[in-house]
């Protein structure tokens, strides 16, 4: 009897140990894999990325910003910069740190991998948005330029990452920066989101939680020092200016297509019809292509025809065929109601 209890305990212990070892993300196995990364090189590359960001956004870079961004002590950061200088990647001016041509190319290569990987995760995997950035932070130090080119070709040479940031070309070309923070616009302006800053993470998570995404059309209702208020897809969102400043937008001129008084396809009752106005950019990759191929494009007449026993999915009549779409996707398809 005692023997039985003993073997049972040993068995359970073994199982728990196995679990600890292989737990995805936090297990010893994945920790060991991460430790294989060359930490010195990672620091250099992170510093170059930060310097490039400063250059692209026209904000000056300093020792403090580097030590803050990479969470290093000041003297460590200084050592790092010296190292960069000795490698010929940066040049030190009187009060600023600048990238050399070589340093810029290096930085662009890292940024290309990072953004491509984020795009890949967004389009081709089921990994949640909140994990993209962190995973790309690891991968950017691993993938070679050739592998990055292969990846780009595979996913159709995308132009931007899922946050709307442009992906540098393999030759290191980058388009001119577009878009300004939403806080610089006026009341009643119609604007389109072109970028959501993904750092700091907490702010990005809040923007995602509000349901904001690149490509969305907004109408600004109020801009003050206390708050920024705007209307989007028939919802009103209020943000603190410091958070709203992380949304970059461009003025939107195609006024005829500003989405107002729209319904979601998921709100359509069985037997009712509508006209598709657009698919939100949150539907990406294969799912988006599939819907487009089946004929869910602006201008398509769509009719809710039949509901499944479980209530979801719903079968819609689309261009002569009956296609079942799940509620999750249907709530990202915008329609105008029509009365036949």
């Amino acid at each position: 009897m005692d023997n039985e209890v003993f073997t049972t305990l040993v068995g359970f212990l073994l199982l728990i140990l196995l679990l600890l070892f292989f737990l995805p993300g936090r297990g010893l196995f994945s920790k060991w894999k991460r430790a294989l990364l060359d930490s010195k090189r990672v620091r250099i590359e992170d510093a170059l990325k930060h310097l490039y960001d400063c250059e692209y956004n026209n904000t000056g870079c300093s020792l403090d910003s580097i030590s803050g961004n990479l969470s290093l002590k000041r003297d460590e950061a200084a050592g790092l910069i010296q190292k960069l200088q000795s490698l010929g990647l940066v040049s030190l001016g009187r009060d600023k740190i600048e990238l050399t041509g070589e340093g810029r190319n290096y930085a662009l290569r890292i940024i290309r991998v990072h953004r491509l990987w984020e795009r890949y995760l967004a389009d081709e995997t089921s990994i949640h948005a909140s994990e993209w950035h962190e995973r790309a932070e690891d991968v950017e130090h691993i993938l070679s330029a050739e592998q990055a080119d292969e990846l780009a070709a595979q996913i159709g040479n995308p132009l931007t990452d899922p946050h709307g940031d442009p992906i540098p070309s393999s030759e290191g070309k980058m388009p001119v920066k577009q878009g300004v923070p939403i806080t610089q616009f006026c009341v009643n302006d119609h604007v389109k989101i072109i970028h959501l800053e993904d750092e700091p993470k907490t702010i990005f998570a809040q923007l995602v939680a509000e349901g904001l995404y690149v490509g969305q059309h907004l109408r600004i209702i109020e801009i003050s020092e206390e708050r920024v208020k705007f209307e989007v897809d028939d919802e009103v969102i209020v943000l603190a200016p410091i958070i709203a400043a992380n949304i970059s937008v461009v003025k939107f001129d195609e006024t005829n297509r500003v989405r107002r008084n729209l319904k979601k396809l998921s709100e359509l009752k069985v037997g009712d019809g509508g006209l598709v106005v657009g698919i939100s950019n949150l539907i990406r990759g294969q799912q988006r292509r599939r819907l487009l191929d089946l004929g869910v494009v602006p201008g398509t007449k769509i009719k809710a025809e039949i509901q499944s026993l479980g209530g979801d999915p719903t079968g819609y009549r689309i261009r002569g065929a009956t296609i079942a779409i799940r509620k999750k996707q249907a709530s990202q398809i915008f329609i105008k109601e029509i009365n036949e």
Partner: peptide, 17 residues
């Protein structure tokens, strides 16, 4: 599996009747 090792695979739903 869909929450762990298969997270890295693309997922798209459509079903024609």
């Amino acid at each position: 599996l869909s929450k762990s090792i298969l997270k890295g695979e693309a997922s798209a739903f459509s079903l024609e009747l």
